[in-house]
Design a protein around this nucleic acid. Structure first.
Lengths: 332, 332
DNA sequence: GGTCCGGCGCAAACCGGTTTGGTAAATCTC
DNA sequence: GAGATTTACCAAACCGGTTTGCGCCGGACC
């Protein structure tokens, strides 16, 4: 394989110096029309493109940001990535996506690696790496935006407010006349379940209704978990006319169990989910659920990071809440 | 912001030359235990990590490959990306993901940009860019693996065989005693519909059954398309006991129409899909469909590219078929 | 006609690493 | 104990660009 054309090759063919080629292409200093024409012709002939490693090395800017996510196959993150990309593209920036696929060690490895590659900024959603450790990895030389619930004084932060969102879903059920509302999903201490549960509680208390312990059923985030939990509740003869689920998969499982027991959704029991996964609109009945606004979160992260990189934004780190949006469909 | 530590800083603190630091860290030449200890101490103290731009520039290798995909929010591609990543990670390579989000110009821009960033290899799935153009963008200096149906003499190729897969799904229906099988989906000439249709035809003809033109219904790839097509067929009084759909969304739409008409799935009409999207297992009844083996395709792409990069594989470009896998669930 | 100025181009330094060639000291060989 | 070899290190070249400093040239101005 022949190697790629270098700027020296262009200079030789155009009959000018490397400097002049650089200036002709960047416009940093004026160049005669004649020289520019010769340079452009040579560039075309050789199919020349600058080696961005060299450019980045010299300029100390790579026009690249990294987005470190826990799992690229979780549809939330690709949608965030698209938002990020749309927010930074016009400024001439690129995003590179790193998925740790649930591996804790790889979170740190990716961050370190991306800093080594001299990215101009980082967006990170971390499951397991403590904030202080991230600090040491980044070294304070690269601006960081934290996506998600992690609180760490290393950069701006963008996150949702599950509590408020679930409270809104619960109030939606109350407005529709449901009074015996159950909560299903999310083992205590695992993931976002607790804040979602507290949103449910807030809404009930706010409406002057009691929290009935039997109607708060904790289970994992799977379809099977939701199905088993609701089936058990029905078997136990519990009485409820609506279910607030901690996530969509659990809600789909809940509907499975209701269908199996001959209860109509939403007529006998209304069901709400959380996440608004693709399948939410595809199942029957279509799921009323909370859209976590992945794309918007991405654009916010991208804009924020860009402002830090350019210095347009300085001062204390900001904390931006992107509230969820209740998506009313058929199930509630 | 203070700038990051450089190798010269490490050398100074350790009291040795830059050369010795490099050798101590890379092991390319022997270094005394004493010097190594001092270097490692200084590295730790300064939290030093090499600037990969400089390393890549000098070594002319970046240990990075790029994966250019048409749409990161199509779950197929993230799963492929995971496969690629798993295949190359142990060799010390990284993958950077570029999504063109359906924009044709950006396909070319990304490829050009990644070549400019001196990636060691490319995996591309192109919707619109012609092969020869890609050739000129890459310049023949970087190995390429083509994912998908594009035929271009610029690199190895990894793709499915929709025709064979759909034929298998159709034979599955025949084995279950279905005889009047319809095909629904995919406008002619758009995407993979034609090869899928021909698999359906192959299977019927192979079983000695005629192709009934009325039972071949072309529509777009959406849920609405499938629903409208099947609703119209039912209205027209067409008689069929199974439907082979060109994709899962269309199949879900088909089931919508069957449900609305009071036909039971699969008892009255069996339905198969294609893609095995997440929702396929979440809808009711769960969809029997063809898994396009995204992860496996990713690992194959990754391994192939790696072999080209290392020179382990040379000679004519290979064409590897990753056959789909029929995933039998409830709908057929 | 000399001075000043702007336009234009080149040489050289620089970014931060790796790699090569050379050398001084230590060790081996006979 | 002289010569050969090895060990351990360093200086300098190099990767491919950008940027800086300087000189040359021609035209305008006094």
């Amino acid at each position: 394989m022949p190697s790629r054309a270098r700027i020296a090759d262009v200079a030789e063919i155009a009959g000018v110096s490397r400097t002049t080629v650089s200036h002709a292409l960047s416009g940093r200093r004026p160049v005669s029309d004649e020289a520019r024409a010769k340079v452009l012709a040579a560039v075309k002939e050789l199919n020349y493109r600058a080696n961005q490693l060299a450019v980045g090395l010299r300029k100390a800017r790579t026009q690249t940001i990294a987005f470190v996510m826990p799992d690229i196959t979780n549809p939330f993150y690709p949608m965030v990535a698209r938002g990020v990309q749309d927010a930074i593209r016009d400024a001439g920036y690129q995003v590179v996506v790193c998925s740790t696929d649930g591996d804790a060690d790889r979170e740190a490895a990716f961050i370190s690696d991306m800093v080594g590659r001299a990215v101009d900024g980082l967006i990170v959603d971390l499951f397991r790496t403590p904030g202080e450790y991230v600090q040491s990895l980044v070294g304070g030389h690269t601006p960081v935006v934290i996506l998600g619930p992690l609180k760490a004084p290393i950069g701006d932060r963008v996150h949702g407010d599950d509590k408020v969102s679930v409270a809104e879903a619960t109030r939606h059920l109350l407005r529709r006349g449901r009074t015996r509302i159950a909560f299903v999903g999310g083992l205590p201490g695992v993931g976002p379940a607790d804040s979602r549960l507290s949103g449910y509680e807030d809404a009930l208390l706010g409406a002057g209704l009691p929290i009935v312990p039997e109607l708060v059923i904790r289970c994992d985030y799977t379809r099977q978990g939701g199905r088993a939990a609701v089936a058990a509740a029905l078997d136990a003869g519990l009485d409820f006319d609506a279910i607030v689920c901690a996530n969509d998969l659990g809600a789909i499982g809940a509907i499975d169990a209701l269908r199996a027991a001959g209860r109509a959704v939403p007529d006998d029991v209304a069901v709400t989910g959380f996440d608004d996964i693709d399948a939410a609109a595809l199942v029957h009945p279509q799921l009323t659920t909370i859209d976590n606004r992945a794309y918007e979160k991405g654009t916010v992260c991208g804009r924020l990071l860009l402002q830090r990189i350019t210095g347009e934004l300085t001062g204390p780190f900001r904390d931006i809440v992107v509230p969820g949006a209740l998506n009313v469909r058929e199930s509630a």
